[in-house]
Design a protein around this nucleic acid. Sequence first.
DNA 1: TCCTGGCACTCGCCCGCGCAGAGTGCCAGA
DNA 2: TCTGGCACTCTGCGCGGGCGAGTGCCAGGA
Lengths: 338, 338
Amino acid sequence: MLDERKLAVLRAIVQDYVGTEEPVGSKALVERHNLGVSPATVRNDMSALEEDGYIHQPHTSAGRVPTDKGYRLFVDRLAEVKPLSAPERRAIRQFLDSAVDLDDVVARTVRLLAQLTRQVAVVQYPSLSRSSVRHVELLALAPTKVMLVLITNTGRVEQRIVDSPVPVGETVLADLRARLNARAGGRRFPEVPALLQDLPEAFEPDDRPIVAAVLSTLFESLVERTEERIMLGGTANLTRFGHDFPLTIRPVLEALEEQVVLLRLLGETADRGMTVRIGHEIDHEGLNSTSVVSVGYGSGDESVAKLGVIGPTRMDYPGTMGAVRAVARYVGQILAES
Amino acid sequence: MLDERKLAVLRAIVQDYVGTEEPVGSKALVERHNLGVSPATVRNDMSALEEDGYIHQPHTSAGRVPTDKGYRLFVDRLAEVKPLSAPERRAIRQFLDSAVDLDDVVARTVRLLAQLTRQVAVVQYPSLSRSSVRHVELLALAPTKVMLVLITNTGRVEQRIVDSPVPVGETVLADLRARLNARAGGRRFPEVPALLQDLPEAFEPDDRPIVAAVLSTLFESLVERTEERIMLGGTANLTRFGHDFPLTIRPVLEALEEQVVLLRLLGETADRGMTVRIGHEIDHEGLNSTSVVSVGYGSGDESVAKLGVIGPTRMDYPGTMGAVRAVARYVGQILAES
DNA sequence: TCCTGGCACTCGCCCGCGCAGAGTGCCAGA
DNA sequence: TCTGGCACTCTGCGCGGGCGAGTGCCAGGA
């Protein structure tokens, strides 16, 4: 059905359309790519491709535009991820290296991705559930108020205020702190609740309420909202979306404001390997004219979070995928070092 | 020069233009506001207002549009801040009350502002230099790596990694921790460096390098980049900017991506009272067609940070100012309570 | 069987035209 | 000082025609 040449035609259409943003016709195609056949032949192939739903004609006597299905085929079978150039890689490395803390790493990553791909970049903070406990700190703020500070191996810090039903002595606090760290230190977050469950029993009955309060706050913060945090950048690139963009850009901006949507978007990313979702493959209405390229990143083999970019379906997939992959790799390295 | 009626005409023009987004003519004016005079008279007044630069005619035979100068006069002398309704205030209160930590307070504030004003909202985290030290924590991560965690009275937490030239003993760390808290605890950040300056001398010569390293990191983080953090929301509202907006929206989005620009914008806000900057009064080119309404907020009399909104110069100033002021007040209260 | 050149056809885009409507400025009169 | 009237100016919009890009189809050739 789809012989070599038809695939070549599709590839050429995608490439040209991405470059020019305009429907591409048979004549222009043969001129720009040496397909070795005449426009008439290409026209026949185009007809077949359209029949099969890979390309589409906005109106009679216009050129062809790839459909989502066409891009899908292109990404799956026709495109090679384009690696970054050595200077580019060096620049990335250098830029990320000078980050001073986790916030900075994430912020720089977002900027970098947005600049390299000229699209909207999204970076998820290393997820708590994939991280482990580096340290738990307890501070008495007031007689019945304790601040709980949680530091992860990825450098993330979470704080919470715990209200104690009874005044808390410094000795109890010190004891609790020591025990928490002894039991939970170095452990993965998901394991933590089980490890600490019977902790109150190690304390005097009088002190158990505060121990319980601290524990419940701790457990909460492991699963809650703050679990997943996201940073966004390059929204100005939305303006390069297309001619008709007032219509397109609005729902996209709205979607980007919804952390939930972004989280779901990244959540659907495979842990290993890159995920590309194109147009209507994304099940969020406002994003049906966009594509998302995302990938997990992490310090070891394992991914601790995801990052990616969002752009028009008409995007340079090979280049974007190259940039996303490279950035993910370097961020992983940086995290491993710190 | 500007008698009562001319001012009334200007006020009417601003109100109508904000409502309709279209140049307003003399006839429509008399119809909508009972000015008690004929269109011809209004035309004369308009002529005078134009002469003085308060309004402007896009082209002959079009209605009039206020200039930046016109909006300025409107804000300064013709507009009354419009207080929010009781249900609105209750809703704000309630929405902010359910915040669980500082991040959440800021995030909710941004959402709220954006929703109330239907514009882009900016909220600055409580600034370090206006805050005081609640607690300093030191954690040994590795023999030569110490994590410095700084907790402020506004609930903000900053962390930094300190590389020590020599391995650090737990006793030294405990000693340093105790002394840091004793001397700096409860103090304003700007005072801190002076208070700690001679701290290394209290230690054995062998330990002084690490003390110095911790101190310099601490001092750095008091003045540095992270000093000022900002949260942004409601960018989707940019799409309601105007008809010609591809041109307008681009530079605005770009400006919003630059933390520096936003910080400067908020930085120029007066500590007390509201600041309104209109169009070309803002010395950033991309924002010359926008206005910024900003105000300080804080737990006591004193402002610890700023917040505000950015919208088209053609905005509902009274309403916006009312919302900004109300939100600032409630955020202050929330912060004071936690 | 597949490719090619030729040809007629279809549409969207652009341009110029003319008209209607909104709004103004000015003037003479109350 | 205000008002009604009037002539004038300009934009926006709808209309129609010409242009060009691109197609589909067909007959002939490898």
